[in-house]
Design a protein around this nucleic acid. Structure first.
Lengths: 343, 343
DNA sequence: ATTAGCACTCGAAAGTCGAGAGTGCTAAAA
DNA sequence: TTTTAGCACTCTCGACTTTCGAGTGCTAAT
């Protein structure tokens, strides 16, 4: 059953109005401000129809209507205007993007923070785990004669480090031998290719520095394991507090806790911005929240999803437009960084 | 004017009771549960005195008393019982400490998270800036023929990295020359010792790899600058929401915003646990919050302060005991790591 | 010095009431 | 057939009142 043009216009006007003001909207306001030249009574009839069709609902009989989740869905799919980014927004996004490109491993953390600032909603970024993680490079540095810092670069472009203490002093020369050996034996191997035999062999070959091998390999294994998992960052957690639908602290906390759990957040792996409204999120704590999300960096080792979480009454047009622009920019930067040519 | 023993006992009983239940306490409860063998009427007289002395206050005339900030101060200084850590707490702390000792630069972030989990309050950790920061080591890695990762280790034991792209392919050999040169020229220099002449000279000497010198030195300068600043991490931001005094979202947000500002938080540099109650914090947004904080790692490059922020009605005994134990453990670990012997 | 007794105060919860916004329905107008 | 004016009706919201009870301060007796 498809809606007539007039019903669509009225529905759109109601939702626009409700998104802006957050209060049930009555027939009078729509009659006046919608541009349609109709009396409140006519609007009322149409509203009644829209309610029967499931697009609107009435908190109580003597109050205006608010959109149902189905109503929002239709709005998002077919009714809402594209939001034209303001210059301020564009500038803020561009600036946000430049911020952290220097330090790739901090990038995503920063991105989710910037996006939170931009939209005033809580955001999350999921860095997708890769199935085949390996260590690209080991690098050992001597801090003092008995302290070694091990830096390793994974195929996911994580750079991780760990400190090791030795019982005896070691020299730069010894260390560089160990360094070379680690890079020969343990780079570009996925976790399942590293077995105890290999570790033993390395240990034996290295003489007295052999004791360093197991802790280093262990740490490497940890890095690889973590690299295989999705990694989630949350930005602007406290921002949901500024929205009236989360005036109730318990509700706010439930949502925040769920997000901080870092599980069950929507992940995209195709182009474009996705919107999940209320119960469309298949997670109970999100049943009265909406998530706007999209994928970035597809094809690069840093691919992932950036999402914005807010109340169902959210300015979808604006948020989606912002996210879209942000994603496009981020994508471009990542492609340049990882030298992926457009085909 | 010093308090008689009986008044002290009554005051202690009142504050204990109030901390536990959060509601104004009346004379009856104290008469029954305080162990003192006195009638409510007597208690009332004493309470009246205590109010005149400024240790208690009455929300309204027909309600029980609550402690004033001065009352809490006295309680904290002289009245409260030491809290004996439970086995569960000890275990949780020990586990929390081991968690991240491997990765020093992640350590403090982790510490503040663990402490938040432990106490169910919002926490912060300030890593003190050092006045004389320098780069200890540079380390260059070739990711692919035109991408270099620069890793640098600062005297603050920050390990930071940045990605550089070159217009032309470079070899391992070239890179190791650059690496050696950077380590010779730019390590162990504070920021004020690095001038353009030095950079120019290095640039010239390096031939075609010279173009890499300025961005690397710039980044190093950034790292040094940041190392001179205090660095603040916040843990468990959403936890204040679980305390009834922050049922009011606006209030909660004001406090959270202040903490996230990362400025004006109390820093300690002597032994032991400090407690600042309400307006004792010299920051307006903290005027009805309390901060329990203490210093760790004194003498190591990672020294700083760990603090817990909560409502004035806080279980000081428990929080202080937990923090104290945590700080001691952390301190010990840091001293071992940085090989500082006890004198 | 302590305590029982009692009048008093005041906040919180429940109840009452009128105003106003908004509806649905009906009958007239277009 | 569609639209609209008119009107009775519903229900929330805020203001006001009432009731209840916890807790007090004071007085007089112990």
């Amino acid at each position: 059953m498809s809606l007539g043009e007039r019903k669509r216009k009225i529905l759109k006007a109601i939702i626009d109005e409700y998104i802006e003001h957050g209060e049930p909207v009555g027939s009078k306001v729509i009659a006046m401000h919608s541009g349609l030249d109709l009396s409140p009574a006519t609007i009322r009839n149409e509203m009644s129809d829209l309610e029967n069709m499931g697009y609107l609902q009435q908190p109580h009989v003597s109050s205006g209507r608010i959109p149902s989740q189905a109503g929002y869905r239709l709005y998002v799919d077919e009714l809402m205007n594209g939001h034209k980014l303001t210059n301020t927004e564009i500038e803020a996004i561009n600036q946000g993007l430049q911020l952290k490109m220097k330090e790739l491993d901090e990038l995503i953390r920063g991105v989710s923070r910037v996006m939170a600032q931009l939209t005033n909603y809580t955001t999350y970024a999921v860095v997708s785990g890769a199935s085949e993680v390996c260590i690209r490079k080991f690098d050992l540095m001597l801090v003092d004669s008995r302290t070694v810092v091990v830096v390793m670069l994974s195929s996911r472009h994580d750079i991780r480090n760990t400190y090791l203490k030795t019982a005896f002093p070691i020299t730069e020369e010894e260390l560089s031998v160990l360094n070379r050996m680690l890079n020969q034996l343990f780079t570009n191997l996925t976790l399942d290719k590293i077995d105890m035999l290999l570790v033993r062999r390395a240990e034996r070959e290295m003489g007295r520095l052999g004791v360093l091998v197991p802790p280093i390999v262990n740490f490497a294994a940890e890095v690889m394991e973590e690299g295989a998992e999705n990694n989630v960052y949350v930005g602007g957690a406290s921002r949901i507090l500024s929205h009236p639908e989360y005036r109730d602290t318990a509700k706010a906390q439930k949502l925040l806790d769920f997000i901080s759990e870092r599980k069950g957040l929507s992940v995209a792996d195709d182009e474009g911005v996705h919107i999940a409204i209320g119960r469309e999120n298949n997670a109970e704590p999100l049943s009265d929240a909406s998530v706007v999300y999209g994928s970035y960096g597809k094809g690069t080792p840093m691919q992932g999803t950036l999402g914005i979480v807010g109340p169902v009454r959210m300015d979808y047009a604006k948020v989606a437009a912002n996210l879209n622009y942000f994603l496009t920019g981020l994508d471009k930067l990542l492609r340049e960084t990882f030298s992926i040519e457009e085909e």
